[in-house]
Computed example of a mutant assay.
Amino acid sequence: MVNIGLGLILMPIAIIFVIFGVFSRKKKNKIVGYGMLITGILILSASVLLLTGIYDPYANHIR
């Protein structure tokens, strides 16, 4: 259940990064735009992994 909450919290943050990255890329500041796009995509992929349950940081795999 904690994974779903964390995934839902990270989703809007990732969307904000992607939107600002697209707008920054269209202006003259392309390096910052690409950096924000990459950061947003990484956060979005982590959010999807948490929401689907593929990645579970709270599971005790090693005993």
Rank of each mutant, 00 (worst) to 15 (best):
I31Q: 05
I43M: 12
R63C: 04
I41D: 01
A14C: 12
M1V: 11
K27I: 03
I4D: 06
L49N: 06
G21N: 04
A14V: 08
Y34F: 05
R25K: 15
K30P: 00
P57I: 07
H61Q: 04
A46M: 14
G40Y: 02
L42F: 14
N3D: 13
G5Q: 14
D56W: 08
L6M: 13
A46Y: 07
L49T: 01
V18T: 09
M1C: 12
L6N: 03
G21L: 00
G35S: 06
R25G: 10
G33E: 03
M11Y: 13
M1N: 13
G40Q: 02
M11A: 15
G21D: 11
L8W: 15
L10Y: 11
L10D: 05
G35Y: 06
V48E: 04
K26D: 03
R63N: 13
K28H: 08
K28R: 08
G53S: 02
M1W: 15
I19F: 14
G40W: 00
I41Y: 10
D56H: 14
L8C: 11
L37H: 01
N60V: 11
L49C: 07
I54C: 03
L51T: 00
I19T: 14
L51N: 09
Y34L: 04
I41V: 13
T39L: 12
G40N: 02
Y34N: 10
L42C: 13
M1Q: 14
G7D: 07
N3V: 11
G5C: 14
I43L: 14
K26I: 09
K26Y: 06
G53H: 05
L37A: 00
I41N: 07
L44N: 05
R25F: 14
V18L: 12
I19W: 15
I38S: 11
F17S: 05
T52Q: 10
V48Y: 10
S45Y: 10
I43W: 08
I15N: 04
